[in-house]
Protein backbone atom coordinates (compact mmCIF):
# COMPACT_ATOMS: atom_id res chain seq x y z
CA UNK A 1 0.00 0.00 0.00
CA UNK A 2 2.83 2.34 0.98
CA UNK A 3 6.06 1.97 -0.96
CA UNK A 4 9.06 4.29 -0.64
CA UNK A 5 12.13 3.98 -2.82
CA UNK A 6 15.32 6.02 -2.39
CA UNK A 7 13.47 9.03 -1.09
CA UNK A 8 15.40 12.13 -0.11
CA UNK A 9 14.25 15.45 1.31
CA UNK A 10 16.02 18.74 1.81
CA UNK A 11 14.73 22.14 2.83
CA UNK A 12 16.23 25.28 1.30
CA UNK A 13 15.72 28.38 3.42
CA UNK A 14 16.01 31.24 0.97
CA UNK A 15 15.55 33.90 3.59
CA UNK A 16 18.41 32.60 5.69
CA UNK A 17 21.19 32.80 3.13
CA UNK A 18 19.78 29.85 1.15
CA UNK A 19 20.77 27.45 3.94
CA UNK A 20 20.13 23.85 2.91
CA UNK A 21 18.97 21.37 5.52
CA UNK A 22 19.14 17.71 4.62
CA UNK A 23 16.51 15.75 6.50
CA UNK A 24 16.19 12.38 4.81
CA UNK A 25 18.17 10.46 2.24
CA UNK A 26 17.73 7.07 0.66
CA UNK A 27 14.64 6.24 2.66
CA UNK A 28 13.16 2.87 1.69
CA UNK A 29 10.16 1.18 3.26
CA UNK A 30 7.07 -0.85 2.40
CA UNK A 31 3.84 -1.29 4.33
CA UNK A 32 1.30 -3.91 3.29
CA UNK A 33 -2.51 -3.83 3.71
CA UNK A 34 -3.53 -4.86 7.23
CA UNK A 35 -0.13 -3.93 8.63
CA UNK A 36 0.55 -1.26 11.26
CA UNK A 37 4.04 0.19 11.33
CA UNK A 38 5.42 2.63 13.90
CA UNK A 39 8.00 5.26 12.99
CA UNK A 40 10.49 5.72 15.78
CA UNK A 41 13.51 7.90 16.39
CA UNK A 42 14.49 10.81 18.59
CA UNK A 43 12.81 14.18 18.30
CA UNK A 44 14.06 15.93 15.15
CA UNK A 45 15.05 12.71 13.41
CA UNK A 46 12.48 13.27 10.65
CA UNK A 47 9.44 11.24 11.71
CA UNK A 48 6.96 14.02 11.08
CA UNK A 49 8.70 15.04 7.85
CA UNK A 50 8.37 11.47 6.61
CA UNK A 51 4.70 11.38 7.62
CA UNK A 52 4.06 14.59 5.73
CA UNK A 53 5.81 13.21 2.68
CA UNK A 54 3.63 10.10 2.86
CA UNK A 55 0.59 12.40 2.76
CA UNK A 56 1.97 14.43 -0.16
CA UNK A 57 2.20 17.47 2.07
CA UNK A 58 5.98 17.77 1.66
CA UNK A 59 7.43 17.07 -1.76
CA UNK A 60 10.44 14.78 -2.00
CA UNK A 61 13.52 15.92 -3.95
CA UNK A 62 14.02 12.51 -5.48
CA UNK A 63 12.78 8.96 -5.25
CA UNK A 64 9.32 7.42 -5.32
CA UNK A 65 6.63 7.79 -2.65
CA UNK A 66 3.92 5.43 -3.84
CA UNK A 67 0.57 5.17 -2.05
CA UNK A 68 -1.94 2.74 -3.55
CA UNK A 69 -0.02 2.94 -6.81
CA UNK A 70 0.05 6.76 -7.02
CA UNK A 71 3.51 8.33 -6.91
CA UNK A 72 3.07 11.41 -4.75
CA UNK A 73 6.32 12.90 -6.05
CA UNK A 74 5.12 13.00 -9.66
CA UNK A 75 1.32 13.08 -9.28
CA UNK A 76 -0.74 16.05 -10.47
CA UNK A 77 -2.56 17.97 -7.73
CA UNK A 78 -5.92 16.50 -8.68
CA UNK A 79 -4.62 12.94 -8.38
CA UNK A 80 -3.43 13.68 -4.86
CA UNK A 81 -6.74 15.37 -4.03
CA UNK A 82 -8.63 12.27 -5.16
CA UNK A 83 -6.25 9.96 -3.31
CA UNK A 84 -6.79 11.89 -0.08
CA UNK A 85 -10.53 11.91 -0.53
CA UNK A 86 -10.90 8.21 -1.25
CA UNK A 87 -7.84 6.27 -0.13
CA UNK A 88 -5.47 8.09 2.18
CA UNK A 89 -6.52 9.36 5.60
CA UNK A 90 -4.42 11.44 7.98
CA UNK A 91 -4.97 12.07 11.66
CA UNK A 92 -2.74 15.00 12.55
CA UNK A 93 -2.05 16.46 15.94
CA UNK A 94 -3.71 19.69 14.97
CA UNK A 95 -7.32 20.39 14.18
CA UNK A 96 -7.79 22.88 11.35
CA UNK A 97 -11.43 23.72 10.63
CA UNK A 98 -13.63 26.53 9.43
CA UNK A 99 -14.61 28.43 12.57
CA UNK A 100 -18.20 28.08 13.81
CA UNK A 101 -18.93 24.83 11.99
CA UNK A 102 -20.60 22.31 14.36
CA UNK A 103 -18.48 19.33 15.44
CA UNK A 104 -20.96 16.89 13.93
CA UNK A 105 -20.48 18.46 10.49
CA UNK A 106 -16.71 18.64 10.91
CA UNK A 107 -16.64 14.89 11.51
CA UNK A 108 -19.16 14.12 8.74
CA UNK A 109 -17.22 16.16 6.18
CA UNK A 110 -15.01 13.39 4.72
CA UNK A 111 -18.19 11.42 3.95
CA UNK A 112 -19.97 14.45 2.47
CA UNK A 113 -16.96 14.98 0.20
CA UNK A 114 -17.47 11.43 -1.06
CA UNK A 115 -21.10 12.17 -1.84
CA UNK A 116 -22.70 10.32 1.09
CA UNK A 117 -26.15 11.84 1.83
CA UNK A 118 -26.00 14.39 4.67
CA UNK A 119 -28.38 12.48 7.00
CA UNK A 120 -26.42 9.30 6.68
CA UNK A 121 -23.07 11.05 7.13
CA UNK A 122 -24.29 12.82 10.29
CA UNK A 123 -25.63 9.56 11.72
CA UNK A 124 -22.26 7.92 11.25
CA UNK A 125 -20.51 10.94 12.73
CA UNK A 126 -22.81 10.76 15.77
CA UNK A 127 -22.06 7.07 16.28
CA UNK A 128 -18.34 7.68 16.16
CA UNK A 129 -18.43 10.74 18.45
CA UNK A 130 -20.45 8.73 20.98
CA UNK A 131 -17.93 5.91 20.81
CA UNK A 132 -15.14 8.41 21.47
CA UNK A 133 -17.05 9.78 24.48
CA UNK A 134 -17.59 13.31 23.17
CA UNK A 135 -20.66 14.50 25.14
CA UNK A 136 -23.71 15.00 22.95
CA UNK A 137 -24.09 18.55 24.27
CA UNK A 138 -20.91 19.50 22.38
CA UNK A 139 -21.90 18.15 18.96
CA UNK A 140 -23.55 21.37 17.84
CA UNK A 141 -20.61 23.51 18.91
CA UNK A 142 -17.48 24.26 16.93
CA UNK A 143 -14.52 22.16 18.09
CA UNK A 144 -12.27 25.23 18.10
CA UNK A 145 -13.23 25.85 21.72
CA UNK A 146 -12.69 22.25 22.86
CA UNK A 147 -9.98 20.97 25.18
CA UNK A 148 -6.86 19.38 23.67
CA UNK A 149 -8.05 15.84 24.24
CA UNK A 150 -11.49 16.56 22.81
CA UNK A 151 -10.01 18.16 19.70
CA UNK A 152 -7.81 15.17 19.25
CA UNK A 153 -10.77 12.83 19.43
CA UNK A 154 -12.62 14.96 16.86
CA UNK A 155 -9.58 14.61 14.61
CA UNK A 156 -9.57 10.87 15.15
CA UNK A 157 -13.28 10.66 14.35
CA UNK A 158 -12.63 12.53 11.08
CA UNK A 159 -9.86 10.09 10.21
CA UNK A 160 -11.87 6.95 10.96
CA UNK A 161 -15.33 7.88 9.67
CA UNK A 162 -14.43 6.75 6.16
CA UNK A 163 -12.73 3.32 5.98
CA UNK A 164 -9.61 4.66 4.26
CA UNK A 165 -7.47 1.79 2.92
CA UNK A 166 -4.35 3.72 3.96
CA UNK A 167 -4.05 5.70 7.17
CA UNK A 168 -1.42 7.94 8.74
CA UNK A 169 -1.63 8.56 12.49
CA UNK A 170 0.44 11.26 14.18
CA UNK A 171 0.40 10.54 17.93
CA UNK A 172 -3.23 9.41 18.01
CA UNK A 173 -3.22 8.71 21.75
CA UNK A 174 -1.04 11.59 22.96
CA UNK A 175 -3.41 13.60 25.15
CA UNK A 176 -6.08 11.01 25.90
CA UNK A 177 -7.15 9.41 29.17
CA UNK A 178 -7.06 5.62 29.60
CA UNK A 179 -10.66 4.99 28.49
CA UNK A 180 -10.41 7.01 25.29
CA UNK A 181 -6.97 5.68 24.59
CA UNK A 182 -8.45 2.19 24.57
CA UNK A 183 -11.24 3.27 22.23
CA UNK A 184 -8.63 4.62 19.80
CA UNK A 185 -6.58 1.43 20.03
CA UNK A 186 -9.76 -0.55 19.29
CA UNK A 187 -10.44 1.63 16.23
CA UNK A 188 -6.91 0.98 15.02
CA UNK A 189 -7.26 -2.77 15.59
CA UNK A 190 -10.60 -2.79 13.71
CA UNK A 191 -9.04 -0.90 10.81
CA UNK A 192 -6.23 -3.45 10.61
CA UNK A 193 -8.75 -6.27 10.43
CA UNK A 194 -10.43 -4.42 7.54
CA UNK A 195 -7.07 -4.48 5.75
CA UNK A 196 -6.03 -0.89 6.32
CA UNK A 197 -2.33 -0.18 5.98
CA UNK A 198 -1.33 2.11 8.86
CA UNK A 199 1.79 4.14 9.54
CA UNK A 200 1.95 5.96 12.85
CA UNK A 201 4.05 7.91 15.26
CA UNK A 202 3.41 6.72 18.82
CA UNK A 203 5.33 8.14 21.75
CA UNK A 204 3.04 6.02 23.94
CA UNK A 205 5.16 2.85 23.98
CA UNK A 206 2.52 0.57 25.45
CA UNK A 207 0.09 1.62 22.71
CA UNK A 208 2.76 1.13 20.11
CA UNK A 209 3.52 -2.40 21.30
CA UNK A 210 -0.18 -3.25 21.38
CA UNK A 211 -1.15 -2.28 17.82
CA UNK A 212 2.04 -2.15 15.76
CA UNK A 213 3.44 -5.13 13.88
CA UNK A 214 6.87 -3.62 13.44
CA UNK A 215 8.89 -0.48 13.94
CA UNK A 216 11.02 1.53 11.56
CA UNK A 217 13.68 3.75 13.07
CA UNK A 218 13.86 6.84 10.85
CA UNK A 219 17.33 7.63 12.23
CA UNK A 220 18.43 5.11 9.60
CA UNK A 221 17.16 7.49 6.90
CA UNK A 222 19.04 10.54 8.14
CA UNK A 223 21.77 11.72 5.77
CA UNK A 224 24.59 11.27 8.25
CA UNK A 225 23.70 7.65 8.73
CA UNK A 226 23.37 6.77 5.08
CA UNK A 227 26.69 8.32 4.14
Amino acid sequence: MFDLKDVSKTFTLHNQGAAVIEVLSEANMTVAPGECVALTGASGSGKSTLMRMLYGNYRAQSGVVSVAGVDLVQAAPREIIRLRREVLGYVSQFLRVVPRVPTLDVVAEPLLALGVPAEDARDQAATLLARLNIPKTLWDLSPTTFSGGEQQRVNIARGFIHPFPALLLDEPTASLDATNRNVVLELIADAKVRGTAIIGIFHDEAARDQVCDRQIDVTGFSPGCAA
Partner: peptide, 21 residues
Protein backbone atom coordinates in the same frame (compact mmCIF):
# COMPACT_ATOMS: atom_id res chain seq x y z
CA UNK B 1 1.94 26.48 -7.75
CA UNK B 2 0.73 23.23 -6.27
CA UNK B 3 -1.56 21.71 -3.69
CA UNK B 4 -2.50 24.36 -1.15
CA UNK B 5 -0.98 22.55 1.80
CA UNK B 6 2.21 21.77 -0.15
CA UNK B 7 2.74 25.39 -1.06
CA UNK B 8 1.95 26.70 2.42
CA UNK B 9 3.75 24.03 4.47
CA UNK B 10 6.72 23.36 2.20
CA UNK B 11 7.22 26.53 0.16
CA UNK B 12 10.03 26.32 -2.38
CA UNK B 13 10.32 29.83 -3.74
CA UNK B 14 11.97 32.56 -1.72
CA UNK B 15 8.96 34.84 -2.06
CA UNK B 16 6.50 32.16 -0.91
CA UNK B 17 8.71 31.43 2.10
CA UNK B 18 8.67 35.10 2.96
CA UNK B 19 4.90 35.29 2.48
CA UNK B 20 4.21 32.23 4.66
CA UNK B 21 6.58 33.34 7.40
Amino acid sequence: AGLTDQVLDDPKHAYTQLLVS
